[in-house]
Design a binder for these strands. Structure first.
Length: 293
DNA sequence: CACTTGACCTGTCCGC
DNA sequence: TGCGGACAGGTCAAGT
């Protein structure tokens, strides 16, 4: 589910809510979601204070004052939802929360702080995970190590963006955008959205796209990611922020989930095909398969 | 080597 | 309504 803007929204929300809180109890009955030795949890998570929360691509890094970090990947359906002590222990939950009383049947990990507030890791499909390891080893995790530069990293200028994509000349541009080792943070929604705005067909091969169009793509990618962060991300189904609320980006999406609806530019029905194994939305008129326009 | 395809899970939606 | 099949925002391992 969550791509860069959704993960960024969760990180910002959690930063306001749980920094400096001290972990009191941790429970999880799902080793796949929480594959940590009990002794590590007891020694380095229980009793730890939350120092900082940051993002690396789509991964969430929670640094603790014990020298350990909790690294979380939400994959498709993961959620990190905070509940204050009254919400966690009272009868109810915030009325504008999409998530009801917690824990529920999707709850994989429950972290209780000393002030009785709680952080829940919910994940319907169990693809996501939360791993505890020394902070010094986070950057060596295979998954983290191979990530390319962050999609909204200002240091990645047009030249860097183009050079990274050119490493995948025989890939479709859609597949290259989704490859986290090329650029980190882009997923299916924002790949489709940025390609629409850059007027590039998702099935074009990177090697056949001009530098000029790739520069356009860099600009439109930054545009859709930034806009989505401002709108609190996209909620198609499962995504919620740190207090269980949905995001609003999809209300103004150009192509994503708009099959058969009118293109916002030319009114042609948006088409949906399969590219790189993913549902892919595009306008057959606006997004050319060459640069003839 | 570069790239594509299934598998991982659970839930929902669509067509018959 | 009921049931089978396709599909869902991500990443890995295995395959071509």
């Amino acid at each position: 589910m969550p791509e860069l803007p959704e993960v960024e929204t969760v990180v910002r929300g959690l930063s306001r809510l749980i920094i400096k809180k001290k972990v009191d109890k941790v429970s999880s009955d799902f080793p796949k979601s929480f594959p940590n030795a009990e002794s590590d949890v007891d020694n380095f998570l229980v009793g730890a204070k939350i120092k900082s929360i940051t993002r690396r691509g789509k991964a969430i890094l929670i640094d603790l004052d014990t020298g350990y970090s909790l690294v979380t990947h939400l994959k498709m359906t993961g959620q990190l939802v905070f509940r204050s002590s009254s919400e966690a222990w009272g009868a109810g939950h915030p009325s504008d929360s999409l998530v009801g009383a917690l824990p529920d049947k999707s709850t994989r990990v429950e972290i209780q702080f000393t002030d009785k507030s709680k952080l829940f890791f919910n994940d319907q499909r169990k693809f996501g995970w939360m791993k505890l390891l020394p902070t010094s080893e986070v950057s060596d995790m295979p998954f983290i190590k191979k990530l390319g530069p962050d999609a909204i990293d200002r240091a990645l200028e047009d030249d860097g963006f183009i050079a990274r994509l050119r490493r995948r000349p025989r890939s479709t541009i859609k597949a290259a955008l989704l490859d986290q080792s090329v650029i980190a943070g882009v997923g299916n929604i924002y790949a489709d959205e940025s390609l629409f705005l850059a007027k590039i067909s998702p099935i074009r091969l990177v090697g056949e796209i001009s530098d000029r169009q790739l520069i356009d793509l860099h600009r439109t990618l930054l545009q859709v990611l930034t806009t989505s962060i401002e709108k609190g991300g996209s909620s198609s189904k499962n995504y919620v922020n740190a207090v269980g609320k949905r995001g609003n980006y999809l209300d103004s999406a150009y192509v994503y989930k708009r099959m058969n609806q009118a293109c916002r530019t030319c009114s042609t029905p948006i088409e949906k095909i399969r590219v790189a194994g993913r549902g892919t939305h595009f306008c057959p008129i606006c997004q050319k398969e060459d640069e003839s326009c």
